[in-house]
Write a protein that binds this DNA or RNA. Structure first.
Lengths: 202, 202
DNA sequence: TCAGCGAGACGAACCGTCTCGTCTCGACAA
DNA sequence: TTGTCGAGACGAGACGGTTCGTCTCGCTGA
């Protein structure tokens, strides 16, 4: 006997409570930052017992992460990169959108709080990888693979490297506040990556 | 009258207490992580009154940051990049060392904790920029400028972009645990940047 | 003499657990 | 179909423990 598992039954879960908790968490993290955010305040604003939060989430970071995910989840659910046939154009579109999102002040506080939480909680990092980052990296890599097969990238281009060359600098600039995250910067990064991994020019 | 400033007199500061606090903070953040680290524990291990910490530091993050800085500060004090005349070789040296440091498990926990703290505390981010990041970016940029004048980079190469293309991917891979941070990866990144911004090949 | 020092008391906030009584839902019998 | 019943999630909040940041104390050294 391993004893009764304390895992609650998801089918009996109260959807209203769940939604109220996520909404309250999203509001409070934007108002207070994650440092001053407490489970008790979330419960109070959501009109919910503390136990209801502790029953379904393992940590404050997990609640905030779910709130972030619920707010940003594409209703269509499917993540996809444009494929017009022109790799440069498609990458510029994606990186411009990414830059725009990172530059949004409303996103900034929540995004930083979430990133900080993810960095120091291995379980949360795994969740973040599985539910957000890996899908994004995968669709990007697949778009690059198509381009490579079409001869728009060198035959020996390392796709993992390419993906990190695209997103890494944007992320680096955003986290450290190094400079403006505007369409021009996105275009510069794309141009550099294509210059490095595009078909040989000589 | 603005009232008496509560700023203590640095000339009367006890150097032994300061050093004991930084040592204790460095040990404890490695043992417990920054989440379970408390000011009271630092004071207890350092054999110091809590007020002595609150008198000189504004936050837990600031103490940890100072501890990190004190531990990593080059005694010679000056930060410099090698300049052998071969840009690729010099960049590989620097990025290999950076990758090695990031891959060090002992550095990992402290580094992540510090990064998380810096990301969510604007005052601390300013400090981090001034005392660590900007000097590093500056020496890197200057090395690139020399190379550009020597014709090892295109005349129109954007040096800010180049620096972010170098460090961004490493940082991105480290934070998200995307893959091994080994010398080979460092070399790949350098090769890509030189491919993008090196002298035209056509 | 006077400001920083070690020590620790203090009230407030929040933690995570727990115990109430209530409410909803599916199973089952009449 | 309808009534009864038990399981389990719910809102509320009491509880002891921990840490917070502030506040005295004498003590010490420049």
């Amino acid at each position: 006997m391993t004893g009764p598992q304390n895992t609650p039954d998801p089918s009996r879960r109260n959807e209203q409570s769940r939604a109220a908790i996520l909404t309250a968490a999203a509001e409070l993290v934007a108002e207070l930052g994650i440092g001053k955010l407490t489970i008790e305040k979330i419960a109070a604003r959501a009109g919910v017992g503390k136990q209801t939060i502790y029953r379904w989430w393992p940590s404050k970071g997990a609640v905030v992460f779910d709130a972030f995910l619920a707010a940003s989840e594409d209703p269509s659910g499917s993540l996809a990169l444009p494929d017009t046939g022109d790799l440069g154009e498609d990458l510029r579109t994606v990186l411009r959108l990414t830059a725009l999102e990172l530059a949004d002040p409303a996103f900034d506080r929540t995004g930083r709080a979430l990133t900080a939480e993810v960095l120091t909680d291995p379980a949360l990092l795994r969740d973040y990888r599985e539910r957000l980052l890996d899908p994004l990296l995968t669709v990007t890599r697949e778009r690059l693979r198509t381009a490579r097969e079409a001869g728009q990238l060198r035959a020996d281009a390392d796709l993992d490297l390419a993906v990190e060359l695209l997103y890494g600098p944007l992320y680096y600039r955003w986290l450290h506040g190094l400079g403006p995250l505007d369409p021009g910067y996105a275009d510069q990064v794309v141009a550099a990556v294509l210059g490095a991994l595009g078909p040989a020019r000589d």
